[in-house]
């Protein structure tokens, strides 16, 4: 059964790129444009095996979203990867503290992406 990944990013280009890479790797991909949409998705019954979220987003940013997502039923233990850049060390740490499992560095190639996912998601 393919694993489902929820991709949250306000940059449509990034979402498109991630979605394509992940789908090629055999994942099922759900997308959301910001934290608010992502929380709605999770509430509406989307049960991702992994979440990839951007940090800087309008409406609800990634840090807040991670906190909200962890409080939702069934999301306590889901691996969450924050999508960050090299320079965002502080944001990474904050995300980690608030419940992110790890991070992905932008830009990320398809191969790197899948490698990181395989490292945190057993059976991927």
């Amino acid at each position: 059964m393919p694993k489902t990944i929820l991709v949250v990013d306000d940059a449509a280009t990034m979402v498109m790129s991630l979605k394509a890479s992940l789908e090629i790797a055999g994942f099922k991909v759900e997308t959301a444009n910001d934290g608010v949409q992502a929380v709605d998705k999770l509430k509406s019954g989307v049960k991702p095996d992994l979440i990839i979220t951007d940090i800087n987003m309008p409406n609800m940013g990634g840090i807040e979203f991670i906190g909200k997502a962890r409080a939702l039923p069934g999301m306590r233990f889901v691996p969450i990867l924050a999508l960050t850049t090299e320079s965002q060390q502080a944001k990474r740490d904050e995300a980690k503290k608030l419940g992110a499992t790890g991070w992905l560095l932008k830009p990320t190639s398809g191969a790197d992406l899948v490698k990181v996912i395989k490292q945190v998601l057993p059976g991927a």
């Binding site: 940059a11 280009t13 990034m14 951007d54 800087n56 309008p58 850049t85 932008k106």
Partner: peptide, 16 residues
């Protein structure tokens, strides 16, 4: 903050 986010997004995308 918004301005930063825009520049950041732009950079993130161009990295692709």
């Amino acid at each position: 903050g918004e301005l930063f986010r825009l520049v950041h997004t732009l950079k993130g995308n161009s990295g692709l």
